[in-house]
Nucleic acid binder design. Structure first.
Lengths: 119, 119
DNA sequence: TGGTATAGTATTAAAAAAGGTACTGTAACG
DNA sequence: CGTTACAGTACCTTTTTTAATACTATACCA
């Protein structure tokens, strides 16, 4: 599909940080410590192995995340945020804040509705 | 699907601004002027009527966009950003900036690769 | 010897999102 | 009288995303 030039910027940005799981993967890696594959799985209980693999590969391809393999058995692979990936920090922080306020707003609205309905 | 609490914030935020067409719809409406249905179509040439309708309805439901019907024939419907929708402005602006830099970075990388390959 | 941990891949199925085309009613324009 | 503009809706197909399950090799522990 053809894309208008303006949209491209958004698409480029969103493609990098969305995908349902990407924001939370990046969020955990932005805490600073490198994390192993199964550590990430434990931090994100509902993600499947496949989804985690897929999204990590995409993030790696975009150089937002770094993958380091230690040639050991059993295998050890560590993922960490790259310096470039850190440039996403303000976006994710803003997004996180806005999302929080948005959820609270919805909650408030719901409560108000329940109030007036039972009146 | 169960969602971990941290992800919810992101999901809540992203659900509101993504959907492939939402960022660009919001971008145009954030310019300030209310826009009619077909004006938006012309500004976003590749969107289909159906997709535009669907996304506008979702944006309306979340109170990010306001829909005003003028009872005329032929019909006139104007869409504008709500005050709440304006709170997305910094996110979209940051996203837009980052996306732009990201595209340029990729372009640069591509050029460099082509250089070294022909050397 | 059997079970567990590691970091995945392969295959298939299901669900969600997006897209395409045709159609609606009304009025003004030519 | 035929065409265009407006703002959609209905119906169907395709594409993309997500999920579920089974499987790999190797080493360590009991």
């Amino acid at each position: 599909m053809q894309k208008s030039p303006v949209q491209c910027q958004f698409v480029a940005a969103l493609d990098s940080i969305v995908g349902k799981w990407k924001p939370i993967i990046l969020y955990h890696l932005l805490q600073g410590n490198p994390l192993r594959f199964n550590e990430l799985r434990r931090l994100i209980p509902d993600i499947t192995q496949r989804m985690l693999t897929l999204h990590l590969r995409e993030l790696e391809e975009e150089e937002l995340v770094q993958r380091v393999i230690y040639p050991q058995i059993p295998p050890k692979v560590e993922y960490s945020i790259t310096e470039y990936g850190m440039s996403l920090s303000p976006i994710l922080e803003t997004l996180h804040q806005w999302g929080k306020a948005h959820v609270e707003r919805k909650q408030l609205k719901k409560e108000n509705n329940e109030q007036t309905e039972t009146d």
